[in-house]
Amino acid sequence: MHCDIYKFPKHPDMYVYIARPDYPDDTDEIKDWLSVLPKDFRAGLGTSKFVMHLDLSNTKKLARVDKEEVLAKLQEKGYFVQMPPADVMRRQAEIRAKEAQDNKYD
């Protein structure tokens, strides 16, 4: 299974894998590969940045997620969202909460 991986500046350490089951035969026309994402979810992501193309059949393991889970979601939904590790999410939430609190008193 081939996939493309994107990141989003508004969401550090989050990556979205998009299935490319017909690769390389799907490259003749320009497509919006991110259109498989639910509209509300995609709207909240902001601008995407292409990271890389990956052939999962030639990849033994992935750094932060289980390869089999990624493959299952790609086949089921056409995409997989790799969330940041829990400690990173907690730190980001603390920063946003502090910023909101500081802005309240400006």
Rank of each mutant, 00 (worst) to 15 (best):
M1V: 12
H2F: 15
C3F: 10
C3Q: 07
I5C: 07
Y6N: 07
K7L: 01
K7P: 00
K7D: 11
F8P: 10
P9L: 01
P9D: 14
K10S: 14
K10A: 15
K10W: 09
K10F: 05
H11Q: 11
H11G: 01
H11I: 01
P12T: 12
P12N: 10
D13S: 09
M14Y: 06
V16N: 15
Y17G: 03
A19S: 14
P21K: 13
D22V: 07
Y23C: 02
P24I: 12
P24S: 14
D25Q: 14
D26E: 13
T27K: 12
T27R: 11
E29P: 00
I30H: 09
K31W: 11
D32Y: 10
D32C: 06
W33H: 14
L34Y: 03
V36D: 08
L37C: 03
P38Y: 08
D40Q: 12
D40I: 10
R42I: 05
R42V: 14
R42H: 12
A43W: 10
L45Y: 04
L45T: 06
G46T: 09
G46E: 03
T47N: 12
F50K: 09
F50L: 13
V51C: 12
V51Y: 08
V51H: 11
M52K: 08
H53N: 08
H53F: 11
L54Q: 14
L54D: 03
D55M: 11
L56E: 04
S57R: 12
S57G: 06
N58I: 03
T59E: 10
T59H: 05
T59L: 07
K60S: 13
L62Y: 03
L62E: 01
A63C: 05
R64V: 04
R64N: 08
V65L: 05
D66W: 11
D66N: 13
E68R: 02
E68N: 08
V70D: 04
Q75N: 15
E76V: 04
E76T: 09
K77C: 05
K77T: 06
K77E: 10
G78P: 06
Y79I: 03
F80C: 00
Q82D: 11
P84A: 15
P85W: 06
V88N: 00
M89R: 12
R90L: 15
R90G: 01
R91W: 01
R91N: 03
Q92M: 11
Q92E: 10
A93W: 01
A93G: 04
I95W: 00
R96D: 13
A97R: 08
A97N: 03
A97M: 04
K98C: 00
K98L: 11
K98E: 07
K98T: 06
A100Y: 08
Q101Y: 06
D102V: 05
D102Q: 07
N103Y: 07
N103M: 11
N103D: 07
K104W: 04
K104R: 03
Y105H: 14
D106G: 06
